[in-house]
Design a protein around this nucleic acid. Structure first.
Lengths: 207, 207
DNA sequence: TAGATTGTTAATCGATTAACAATC
DNA sequence: TAGATTGTTAATCGATTAACAATC
């Protein structure tokens, strides 16, 4: 794998996917780097540079086939595969997240849900019954889980992390405490408030 | 206002706040650029460069006073003021967002909630009764709203945007459609899935 | 073929890091 | 004062933009 692709490029790939989805909805077959750039508020040059990281999949004098490009970017991100997921913490955010998008449609299968709250244990979300978090460790040992979506309150974050660490391949962390990746476990720390705070800055500093 | 501060610096400010909060919890009084850098996985050089955008508030040979620095960064972001907010769309994400953090504690007062769903109209969240979205336009005209938190489904996004545009100072947009800022209205487009997708990339491309 | 648009190299721009004099 | 750490300038590194030959 060409492992030398810069992080800024990777972060742009999901945005390309979204733009390409729009083109696909409109049944557009081909698209040029310039058209993509306009939709993205970027430049044609950057678009071509980005795509060049992965080898050439455009056509001189023609542009890019929307469907092919879309499939290629999905493949690069690894979205052509399926991922087994669990949700830990089925409170407000947890519930919102699993309802947010059709995860299973895009390859993310929620296979189990855990919560500490006895009132939630036994309740079902999207057809999956919430288990007591007591069983998490056991479950993790017996099942191959790719991704844990972590939505527990601050105080429970670290102890849950200890259970998940080096057992799941990735943690999508909505808890307010930052978690560190390990050799085996990647981490994506989400801090929703950060975006709100920068929004406030830009509200106050229009230019 | 020194309006020439780069966006990458602004985006780091909320992270500084988080780290400083940790120091404050531990009642640490002073901190050096190096200590901050370690906590942030950054460099002392960068920390000092960042802070220099706003004038000097460190002390030679001493470092930074945690509380002062914290207050200063909050002030730069504009978090020393209060913001009147409304929530449009009280479904899963909407509810999760307003429950997520103690918004009113940090200066964000949710003053009204709107939804199109008759089953939600009249229900209360955090003491605020959900209004029919029919009343949104009227409400926006009569009240000075700083920020709209937009959590409506994809199909309702654009029509809601038309109502909010140039009436609120900022839109924190959780809808899947990207919205553009106007001269008056700043926009923060949140795409939760983007983070999940890059996580998947890093799972598959460990280095 | 002529026109269009790519892939790719070179130039520019901006952000990060290094270094050190200033100073508490 | 001596030690520490800042503020700030200069050097490096990386990312973006411009340019153009290659080619469909």
């Amino acid at each position: 794998m060409g492992n030398d692709i810069s992080k800024v490029v990777i972060k742009r790939l999901p945005r390309y996917l979204r733009v390409l989805e729009l083109f696909m909805e409109r049944e557009v077959e081909r698209v040029s780097s310039k058209e993509l750039a306009i939709k993205l508020g970027s430049t044609a040059s950057q678009v071509r540079q980005d795509f060049n990281c992965f080898g050439d999949f455009g056509q001189h004098g023609y542009g890019y086939k929307v469907k092919d490009l879309y499939a290629k970017i999905k493949e690069i991100l690894g979205l052509n595969k399926k991922y087994s997921c669990i949700l830990v913490g089925a409170g407000n955010i947890g519930q919102a997240i699993i309802n947010y998008s059709k995860f299973s449609n895009i390859g993310f299968d929620i296979e189990a849900i855990f919560d500490i709250n006895p009132k939630l244990v036994g309740v079902s979300f999207r057809g999956i019954e919430v288990c007591d978090v007591e069983n998490l460790n056991d479950y993790i040992q017996k099942n191959d889980i790719d991704i844990a979506i972590l939505c527990v309150p601050e105080i429970q974050t670290l102890q849950t992390y200890e259970i998940l660490k080096n057992k799941v391949r990735g943690i999508w962390n909505f808890a307010t405490v930052d978690l560190n990746p390990t050799d085996y476990t990647s981490v994506e720390n989400v801090h929703l408030n950060d975006g709100l705070f920068t929004l406030v800055y830009f509200i106050n500093n229009r230019n």
